[in-house]
């Protein structure tokens, strides 16, 4: 038998895997590890969402937003409506919003929460 023939024979022999008793069990174990990885990711993303929410809430409290809203609500309701209509008429100039720094923080936190929720949903889908 020539070298070439022997090498071809060897390649054929290598292409036949040894007989293993548990190929199904092995595949299930790999699948379980993949699932564990995805579960961990979901938990991580969920935790990131919760942290984002906590940051948003703490920002809202520390800036006294709620108490200020409470003060403002009843007597100035018509005034707010009037201001809103003026704002709409002026073409939505966001930079002029009261306490814009806090608003940006809150928006960022809300965005983080939203991204967390969307990512969690997506990882559920795939």
């Amino acid at each position: 038998m020539s070298d070439f023939e022997f090498e071809a024979r060897l390649e054929r022999m290598f292409s036949q895997p040894p007989r293993l008793t548990d190929p199904g069990l092995f595949a299930a174990q790999v699948q379980a590890r993949l699932e564990r990885g995805w579960a961990f990711r979901r938990v991580l993303l969920g935790a990131a969402g919760v942290v984002g929410g906590v940051v948003a809430a703490s920002q809202a409290f520390s800036s006294g937003l709620l108490s200020r809203l409470g003060q403002v609500q009843a007597p100035v309701k018509p005034l707010i409506a009037e201001l809103r209509s003026e704002r709409l008429a002026a073409g939505n100039d966001w930079s002029a919003l009261a306490g814009s720094g806090e608003v940006i923080w809150i928006a960022a936190a809300m965005l983080a929460v939203t991204v967390g929720i969307i990512a969690t949903r997506l990882s559920d889908t795939f």
Binding site: P17, P18, L20, P23, G24, F26, A27, E35, F126
Partner: peptide, 24 residues
């Protein structure tokens, strides 16, 4: 595209060959 079931099928088909190479 993230389909773990499809990948599981690849594992089912080819795990014996991969384990065989390692044992060899």
């Amino acid at each position: 595209a993230g389909d773990r079931r499809a990948f599981g099928e690849l594992v089912r088909r080819h795990n014996a060959g991969v384990r065989g190479v390692l044992m060899r």
